[in-house]
Amino acid sequence: MFDPKVITALLADNVRKSGNPFGLANGSINTWWKGKNLAGEGGSLLLTGLMYQMVPYINAATGLLEKYEDTPTAERIRFARWVPRFLSAAVLKMKASGEDRNSAARILEDITRILAASGVDFAYRPELDFYSGILLYDLGDLDSFITHARRVAGRLQEAGVERIITVDPHTTWALKKLYPRHAGYAPEVRTYFELADLSGSTDREVTLHDPCFYGRYLEVSQVPRTLLAGLGVRCVEVTGSGPFTTCCGGPAESVSPALALEVGKRRVTELEATGRPLVTMCPICQANLRRAGAEVMDLATLLAGIVENRRTGDSSRRTEDRGRKSEEFPSAAIE
């Protein structure tokens, strides 16, 4: 385990300087929207919170931390208060995989397709797409979280943003519950799948991994199930689901990749017991469950695939995948 004091200080410093935990310019992380011709004006603002975009850097950082955890290097960090060079923005940028970046971009593009297919009036403005600061809150650095949240809230208020569409549970929790309390900003916040109104037809079974913040803290885990049921997707449940979902282990990755992996492996065993393709709706869960050896599809990929099949009239993919492992799961038609 790394010294939480050092890790927290490093992350808080990065958020203060760059607006995200990696010390990289938001513009260099957030590139998925380019060339997509998304409307800049509209009823609700799509705010990704940069969580999906950060996955390539989270994976890179976790890989490096994993290499040094419980080694003399980790101890030097603890005693010398030495900010590790291997966690510098330049190294993380170099180590972040292009495949991870493309995967995150595809999921976000799928979300915009789902919103468009649902007739949702939304806008995307990259200059207003901020990281929420949630990691600082979770690590116990409330002062740094509040400073960042107030800065973000100020920018959103200045732009007159009153309705926000979110794409991940951590940003949703932060904007919906923490910003009103700590930043005095209370916009209407909905997740994209709460707004989804899709038509399509398939015949599949999947197992959902509910992220803790959707299942337990925000209690919205029934929403994707209802949505999927309407499209012909049955959810085969594990005991730890909905409000009693079991953690993926991801939140520990910044201080102990070993612990995150241990918890993740246990969750993968639970989930894989159903033998169905695994689906989740959180970039942190997806990344950590994948690190623990599972193939996990994002809900947006599944939904967009079904909608796209309807649009193209391609029914050939509908039934043959029941009971398959997710590596055999038909990829979304847009890929």
Partner: peptide
């Protein structure tokens, strides 16, 4: 040891 907590809320 506190930072082992995942804040999963279970």
């Amino acid at each position: 040891d506190l930072w082992q907590c995942l804040h999963c809320g279970l």
